[in-house]
């Protein structure tokens, strides 16, 4: 399979009912492929931060961001793909286990610096964080034991260092055509 070009986009949005539906609806009607979406509260009350992974070339991603920015509830949009960023996702994995297989699973959990958060006679719940490759790798290794349920949060991302994406300081928003040399007023 050919490698699909992906971009990690974060957006600061007004925390209002329907905002997620608006964004999801915009993606689908404009034919944008979003492989990943994570939402949560931000450091500012009333604002949520979203992380998207958009598939497509630069033209597609530019359109994704502009169309996002056009939505009234979206405050700022950042393409942080090129930034030095930390990427993480969290997964909960329920694996069949018995006395015989448990030690082997626990060894894998150790290697992946994951945690066992629930133990039953015939099952374990494992919590793992990391980038997608790491989570994928653990899932693959656990398959043979009988993977019963997988729950993944999707990717969240943050730039390294003191710079932040936000309304007051730091990383410049990507969307800005009129004023390439100045910071855009959201």
């Amino acid at each position: 399979m050919a490698q699909v070009e992906t971009h990690t986009i974060t957006a600061l949005v007004q925390d209002r009912p329907g905002v997620l539906a608006r964004i999801a609806g915009m993606f689908s009607r404009r034919g944008f492929n979003i492989s990943n979406l994570a939402v949560g509260h931000s450091e500012t009350p009333g604002l949520s931060r979203m992380t998207f992974v958009a598939e497509g070339d630069e033209w597609v991603v530019e359109q994704v961001m502009k169309q996002l920015y056009k939505l009234i509830d979206v405050v700022q949009v950042y393409d942080i793909t090129a930034e030095n960023i930390v990427l993480r996702e969290l997964a909960l994995l329920k694996v069949r286990s018995n006395a015989e297989s448990r030690p082997e699973i626990m060894q894998l959990v150790d290697i992946f610096r994951a945690n066992i958060v629930d133990v039953a006679k015939d099952a374990l719940v494992i919590e793992v964080t990391g980038d997608e490759e790491k989570v994928d790798a653990l899932i693959q290794l656990l398959q043979p034991f009988g993977l019963r349920e997988v729950m993944r949060t999707g990717r969240i991302a943050m730039s390294r260092g003191p710079a932040t994406t936000g309304p007051r300081k730091g990383v410049k928003p990507t969307i800005d055509h009129s004023a390439p040399d100045t910071e855009v007023v959201p």
Partner: peptide, 18 residues
Amino acid sequence: VDPAEIGKNVGVAVPIVG
């Protein structure tokens, strides 16, 4: 005035939003 229209259909040498 709508930045999303710039570069949507044709390539643009000089975009001016406003």
